[in-house]
């Protein structure tokens, strides 16, 4: 295996990890502050991608499409929070799982109703397409590199928001003691809506960014949702830092596993069965990783509450 291939795969892993982080960050914030499991988070990711594809088709501008994805997902998130989610905060996890499962059905079929079952396409703008040569002679698509950059910028921005702003102080206070901050005069209902919309906006942005590499279609949010859950469970639910570490871990494992495992099994098995077993195990690898981490640390790497 050449060093260049390895470097490319590591970059691919980072790229998918960063996009997972955008989705998982909202999920973990929502759980950390409101104690809510939101299965419909993947639907907000899909809403972002569809909004971006629609606006890009209408205006031709990629930046406008990204803005639309953020706005549409945030609006959909705020709407859902006000109509449904706020009734669920006091309920147990089972009710939350079911109600948000119901929301997935509504979102998916609703989108299919409007746009049909065929995938839409969102093109990478000309100024971001084509490969770029990195130090060491590695050719890598500029767009994917940009995505890694956007992910890093969002991670830094979130860090700044949470540690240095008034909203961030309220979010952290909300994670620690919900009743106390509402007793201190913070409008907790409004804070919840803002956090939910913020999480939705991040997921929507991720949907649009990934939608330009893959296709934009109904059901695109669900695999990502499951991966994002794996990420936040590995990282410890409620921890943004955990979400970042977990996302990179999952992104890299998912990308490098199919590369390394067949080689590893090739050391002591014949090539054909090594390839089969390696590929099968690689597809399960992140779940094995998650189970192993949970058995070792039942509340995740950076989790505080079980």
């Amino acid at each position: 295996m050449s060093a260049i291939l390895l470097a490319e795969q590591v970059l691919n892993g980072l790229q998918s990890g960063m996009m997972l982080f955008l989705t998982a960050a909202g999920l973990t914030l929502i759980f950390g502050v409101m104690g809510l499991i939101n299965l419909a988070h993947g639907s907000l990711y899909m809403v972002g991608a569809f909004a971006a594809a629609a606006v890009a088709a209408y205006t031709g501008s990629f930046l406008l499409a990204l803005a639309a994805s953020i706005a549409a997902a945030a609006a959909a998130g705020a709407l859902v929070e006000v109509l449904v989610i706020r009734r669920l905060y006091a309920r147990d996890h089972l009710d939350q799982v079911l109600a948000t499962f119901a929301l997935i059905l509504i979102f998916s079929e609703g989108t299919r109703w409007i746009y049909g079952s065929f995938p839409l396409f969102l093109n990478i703008p000309p100024y971001l397409s084509g490969p770029i040569t990195l130090p060491g002679g590695i050719q890598y698509p500029l767009y994917r590199l940009t995505i890694i950059g956007v992910g890093l910028a969002v991670a830094l921005g979130l860090y700044g928001l949470i540690t240095h702003t008034k909203l961030g102080i309220r979010i952290r206070a909300g994670e620690n003691d919900r009743e106390m901050i509402s007793a201190l005069g913070v409008d907790i209902g409004k804070l919840y809506t803002i956090i939910f919309a913020l999480g939705a906006a991040l997921a929507g942005l991720a949907g649009a960014l990934v939608g330009a590499i893959q296709s934009v279609q109904v059901g695109m949010g669900e695999p990502v949702l499951i991966l994002a859950f794996v990420v936040i469970v590995i990282g410890g639910i409620g921890s943004i830092k955990g979400a970042l570490v977990g996302a990179l871990l999952v992104g890299l494992t998912d990308t490098l596993g199919p590369l390394f495992l067949p080689c590893l099994f090739g050391l002591f098995l014949e090539p054909a069965s090594a390839a089969t077993i390696g590929a099968s195990l690689a597809s399960m690898l992140i779940y094995i990783l998650m189970a192993a981490i949970l058995v070792w640390r039942p509340s995740g790497l950076y989790g505080v509450r079980a």
């Binding site: 799982v97 469970v233 597809s283 779940y287 058995v295 039942p298």
Partner: peptide, 29 residues
Amino acid sequence: LALRTSGVYFIMLSLAFGQMLYYFAISWP
């Protein structure tokens, strides 16, 4: 394995085992 945890972690761990078998079935020819 999964009953060592509770609450959300149990939900997610049971989901993870399901997904493990799902992906195994897909990739096992």
